[in-house]
Design a binder for these strands. Sequence first.
DNA 1: ATAAATTTTTAGACAAGTCTAAAAATAATA
DNA 2: TATTATTTTTAGACTTGTCTAAAAATTTAT
Lengths: 221, 221
Amino acid sequence: MFTLSEENYLKAIYHLELGNDGGVSTNAIAEKLATKASSVTDMVKKLSEKEVVLYKKYKGVTLTVLGKTVAASVVRKHRLWEVFLVEKLNFSWHEVHEVAEQLEHIKSAKLINQLDRFLGFPTHDPHGDPIPDKDGNLKIVAKSLLSTLSKNESGICIGVDDSSSEFLQFLDKKGITLGKKITILDKEDFDDSLSILIGDKKLSISNKIASNLYIRAHTGQ
Amino acid sequence: MFTLSEENYLKAIYHLELGNDGGVSTNAIAEKLATKASSVTDMVKKLSEKEVVLYKKYKGVTLTVLGKTVAASVVRKHRLWEVFLVEKLNFSWHEVHEVAEQLEHIKSAKLINQLDRFLGFPTHDPHGDPIPDKDGNLKIVAKSLLSTLSKNESGICIGVDDSSSEFLQFLDKKGITLGKKITILDKEDFDDSLSILIGDKKLSISNKIASNLYIRAHTGQ
DNA sequence: ATAAATTTTTAGACAAGTCTAAAAATAATA
DNA sequence: TATTATTTTTAGACTTGTCTAAAAATTTAT
Ligand SMILES: [Mn+2]
Ligand SMILES: [Mn+2]
Ligand SMILES: [Mn+2]
Ligand SMILES: [Mn+2]
């Protein structure tokens, strides 16, 4: 139905649409896919022919309902495979993305349904991102950046904004993993760095780190 | 390193070399890959450039040591994935091939090593075919066609020669699965059909069926 | 050994996906 | 609003892998 390349474009547009409200620009897609704007224009025309995006010259693109379904299915596969790699094959969360980029294009409805069952119908991937259901719907969990919490507030670490290998390995080194409780002990005014309690350990982290960690807000300490 | 298409050519040549002794012909490769002889000539030149096959115009091709290693690694991945699909994801043996044809091209050494471990280092795939080890070696188990056994001889069913979906589903219907003991009760001279005992069931099967089932010979009844 | 049949290779074309360079449209600035 | 800067599209080219049709080599048959 759709080629590997078409699927990658649909996925890129899908992710870009979540941030932006209007149409997605040619340049934004080109940057996300590390390709050239001219290539994007060509592909976008083809996707428009196939009725998975709406496209008007110079006006950017938006996914159709069909396009959104296809994109969500690719994202679903990507994230289920990431869970598989971590839960069953002893991968670390910083190693899974590259392999999932390949596995997400395997075509077999039975495969993905059975994988889902085998993994116990997980709702989130190893980076805390939600896994779309069969119909492409994903339920958004309310979350806030660690950097927005005030002194003495605490919450559970439930995801990362930057899921680059480097950042994830940094978190490993610091002992910061999903599911752990984090409490703000102190905030430095001049550089917005934080002193936090994670598990039983005290850590000092920069604002940049705190701006890439998601917390499920948790009233009380 | 190698494209999906290159890997498929190498695998085809690998399988064809196991049967034939000399070089593999252009037409044989074309037929196995459902493509045209002219396409094969083009690709074989490229593979020769990459030093994975030896090629002399009009003389057919043979794999180099490197080519054999690459091909065996693809076969290894194919068969490990087939085991995964049957053992973990409830696929039947007649459903796995198509999906494994896709999965065999996923590139990740860690993935395949961990999959191997996760599956308990299996030696054979769901069709009884041996799984090459990391170095591409596969140990051949002595086996004979059911059709070559004589009256009152028996053995364990350990593989199929034809692993088409149709044949495998036929075997399912008859209750013939790998691991079962089969005893020849009688042989009909005029059509070479067999009367066999499999498990506790008596069956009559044609010579065509018996010529596609492998048995581990088993002296004594 | 010649002729006929078959196999293999070559020549040229095509689709998918990408690129560079240049033109056109849109957005930002003065 | 006119000019400049940025974004987007077009035009033309390239690579990979495939195809058809025709030429060349090899094999088989007479
Ligand atoms: Mn990922
Ligand atoms: Mn992820
Ligand atoms: Mn198979
Ligand atoms: Mn198999």
